[in-house]
């Protein structure tokens, strides 16, 4: 998947090509899923099935596509991340039950795309800009490929990568969470990394 291929997909999807849009969203599924899990699991400190959140995010992306103004891969992923963040945050609120729900926000989640008012537009555009400059400069294609590769790993490999790399836990904490000795967790991590690297080389 080259940069221009990806941008072509974005272009066609924005022009209303359903199959292109579908392909675009499917390509990003692993990416969205991985980031969602990293955020939620880091916060809940336990495993979490993020498929609902991913579904929700991709659905909103589909519904709100006409509001996406960017052209590049980086802008697209930044936009997706923006929608995802907003969903994970909502999920966190619901889960804690501490805060009252923002009615307006709920409206915007369910109605985006069908009933877009001006304030909603601005909200999406604001999300669009949440990217830090350093992120935008990086090669985003690598991120999608990496997320796909992680998704192909066996479950325990995925978990150790999730804990050590994405949640930035120390090996002592990783070992506790996985019920293994720290040494075993480290060896597992090394094997996971090796397999990841092989998967990436095959692409």
């Amino acid at each position: 998947m080259s940069q221009s291929r990806f941008e072509e997909l974005i272009h066609r999807a924005r022009a209303g090509d359903r199959s292109a849009e579908n392909e675009l969203l499917q390509k990003c599924r692993s990416y969205v899923s991985l980031i969602a899990r990293a955020q939620i699991e880091g916060w809940m400190r336990t495993k979490f099935d993020a498929s609902d959140l991913v579904q929700q995010t991709l659905l909103e992306a589909h519904q709100g596509l006409e509001n996406f103004k960017g052209q590049t891969e980086a802008e697209w992923l930044g936009w997706l991340r923006g929608i995802l963040n907003h969903n994970t945050l909502d999920f966190a609120r619901k889960y804690q039950g501490a805060a009252k729900r923002d009615v307006k926000r709920e409206f915007s989640i369910n109605q985006t795309g069908r009933n877009v008012d001006q304030s909603d537009r601005q909200q999406w555009e604001l999300k669009d800009q949440t990217e830090t400059p350093s992120r935008i400069l990086l090669n985003r294609e690598q991120e999608i490929l990496m997320a796909e590769a992680v998704a192909q790993l066996p479950a325990d490999y995925q978990e150790v990568i999730m804990l050590r790399n994405l949640q930035r836990l120390s090996f002592k904490q990783v070992a506790e969470r996985m019920n293994r000795s720290p040494g075993a967790a480290q060896m597992l991590w090394l094997r996971a990394l090796n397999q990841l690297q092989e998967l990436l080389e095959c692409v």
């Binding site: 980031i35 990293a38 991120e143 990496m146 997320a147 990568i161 990394l193």
Partner: peptide, 14 residues
Amino acid sequence: KLMTCLDSLERLAP
């Protein structure tokens, strides 16, 4: 190569 892997994983982290 493995360090390159770590680099791109780090970019995915929240």
